[in-house]
Computed example of a mutant assay.
Amino acid sequence: MSEPANSLRFDVVIDAVNLGAFTAIEGLEASYEVKTYDEGGENGFQHQLLGRVHYQNLKLTRPVDGSTKGLSGWFSSFRREGSGRPAVATIVAFNDNREPVAEWTMMGVCPVRYSGPHLSTDQAKVATETLELAHQGFLAQ
């Protein structure tokens, strides 16, 4: 058995642009609508048919520091420089030896929300920024 992926080690690349390391990724999810169909005369059985597939938005979070490119700039330039065309994004998970273990590639990726850090003198927390991405599904590996 190979070494498992470590949930602390992963990278995000969108259209060959490495956006750097993140501390959290949420939303690697897909689900089908299930439609039920009752067949006449058969009271003990119900057909379950797959409907549309729904892909959850990805939420990428990381601390704000001087070594990372600002996500706010990338978010703003996406429409301007990329002509707003959907992109391809890849998330790679690594093991403790920084060897790739798993990879998820999404097509039709578009940024939908950027959240900057919440700054306050009341709390001594690490400032983080969040990028939310919509996508049209996973590509087969």
Score class of each variant (00 low, 15 high):
residue 49 L to S: 00
residue 27 G to K: 11
residue 138 F to G: 06
residue 99 E to R: 10
residue 16 A to M: 02
residue 140 A to I: 12
residue 115 S to V: 02
residue 129 E to C: 11
residue 119 L to T: 12
residue 84 G to D: 11
residue 127 A to T: 15
residue 87 A to I: 12
residue 94 F to I: 11
residue 17 V to I: 14
residue 37 Y to Q: 13
residue 87 A to Q: 10
residue 48 Q to T: 02
residue 85 R to N: 01
residue 87 A to L: 05
residue 138 F to Y: 15
residue 73 G to S: 04
residue 108 G to Y: 02
residue 74 W to R: 04
residue 131 L to Q: 07
residue 112 V to C: 00
residue 126 V to E: 00
residue 62 R to M: 06
residue 7 S to H: 13
residue 32 Y to G: 01
residue 94 F to G: 10
residue 43 N to A: 09
residue 15 D to S: 08
residue 11 D to V: 13
residue 118 H to D: 00
residue 16 A to Y: 05
residue 64 V to R: 00
residue 112 V to Q: 04
residue 57 N to V: 10
residue 131 L to Y: 10
residue 127 A to G: 09
residue 53 V to D: 09
residue 17 V to H: 07
residue 67 S to R: 08
residue 78 F to N: 03
residue 58 L to N: 04
residue 132 E to W: 04
residue 66 G to M: 08
residue 93 A to S: 03
residue 49 L to M: 13
residue 97 N to G: 04
residue 23 T to I: 11
residue 115 S to I: 02
residue 58 L to P: 12
residue 138 F to S: 08
residue 123 Q to N: 09
residue 110 C to L: 10
residue 137 G to K: 07
residue 112 V to A: 02
residue 67 S to I: 09
residue 90 T to S: 10
residue 50 L to H: 10
residue 14 I to L: 02
residue 82 G to I: 05
residue 37 Y to A: 01
residue 75 F to R: 01
residue 136 Q to R: 10
residue 85 R to L: 01
residue 39 E to N: 10
residue 8 L to E: 04
residue 41 G to P: 07
residue 75 F to Q: 05
residue 39 E to R: 15
residue 18 N to F: 08
residue 61 T to I: 14
residue 10 F to E: 03
residue 38 D to R: 14
residue 22 F to S: 03
residue 70 G to M: 10
residue 123 Q to T: 15
residue 6 N to A: 03
residue 28 L to W: 14
residue 83 S to P: 06
residue 73 G to V: 14
residue 87 A to D: 00
residue 141 Q to A: 12
residue 47 H to Y: 03
